[in-house]
Design a protein around this nucleic acid. Structure first.
Lengths: 189, 189
DNA sequence: GAGCATATGCCAACACCTGTTGACCTTGCG
DNA sequence: CGCAAGGTCAACAGGTGTTGGCATATGCTC
């Protein structure tokens, strides 16, 4: 898709804009993050943002592009399933601000919600199909797992509630792992 | 605190503004809900909103005033604890848009996040103290329960994900009840 | 019932902020 | 040198919360 020559003189600026945008979107959401604030943080003029990314929406689309990289169930011992998955998701949320951005924007912006649904449908549900025994159950299992993971991420990384943010990662994993495991493997409540 | 005479001629208008505000805030969040849109839906002039509630923030403070009414643990049979609590929270989220509003705004607006923290600290943690055996553990238990409930509410009532919204209430209760119960009663993961 | 004070409501405008655009310099490379 | 890409500046059109002035209608006092 990107057929432009690999080295442009403005690549540094583009990268600076993207980095600033990631930061501002994650911090302030879509409406809260103004083009002027992003440009200011990147140290350039607001008009450059538009020239390089077409529009604010175009920039946002570039920023929010996430691969969940859910591990292959075949390579996980059955008794470690919950622990491995929860650990993976925590790392995902802590890696960069993309998921925080996605959630922040998805909650207020219809287009953002659409994008969140896309991630759920294209990555989480298929993973649930690989994990569970009955593929028809996958959407429900994915929903249950997502509810627990999203809820903890919301408290811990978005709202930054004291008790949630201060829990050690090991504690979070220890408590959530059995829940997630049950949602995936148990045939009924 | 409210010493004004009980019957003002403008009470109907005030109520209309509050109702419209509840709706718009729940739907569009704090920034998305404009004073003009609220006034339009209430069928009056935008200036009336300011005159009656001082400012947009004042109106929002009036709208977002929620009592979780968490039931008394002494009146719940131990084996019904999870079911009763999950059912209670689902009804709370479905009753009116207040919790949806609170979540939508809390995610993007710092003041909204503060208010959400207040609800958590003043209502959820004390409840966890009454429920659990070790009061020192209450913040962590409240966090775990909140993570599961908030996550499901997020998918079901805010983002309106298909699979989450279409699950029957009974199904949600059946799946979440054991989780919530474990978070409250189990001394360790 | 008449007159008046006051509450109620609308209109127009304000100052500010938003995304976006076009004209204009400036730098670096062929 | 010439020319295109990189970058800045100022301005635009539209939307925001908020304010003051002006019309109207209501309810109270005589």
């Amino acid at each position: 898709m990107d057929v432009t020559p690999p080295h442009r003189r403005s690549d540094a600026t583009r990268a600076a804009i993207l980095e600033a945008a990631r930061d501002r979107f994650a911090q302030d959401g879509y409406d809260g993050a103004t083009v002027r604030a992003i440009a200011g943080q990147a140290g350039i003029d607001p008009s450059m943002v538009i020239r390089y990314f077409g529009s604010k929406e175009g920039l946002f689309a570039r920023v929010v592009d996430v691969a969940l990289d859910i591990p292959d169930p075949a390579r996980i011992p059955a008794e470690d399933l919950g622990r491995v998955l929860v650990t993976h998701f925590l790392e995902l949320w802590e890696r960069d601000g993309v998921l925080v951005t996605l959630l922040r924007v998805g909650v207020t912006n219809p287009a953002g919600a659409q994008r969140l649904r896309g991630v759920f449908r294209d990555q989480l549900v298929p993973a649930a199909e690989r994990f569970g025994h009955d593929p028809a159950d996958a959407p429900r299992r994915a929903t249950l797992v997502a509810s627990q993971i999203l809820g903890m991420a919301l408290l811990r990384y978005v709202l930054k509630f004291g008790p949630a943010a201060e829990m050690s990662r090991a504690d979070v994993v220890a408590w959530l792992a059995p829940t997630v495991e049950r949602y995936i493997t148990s045939p009924e409540p």
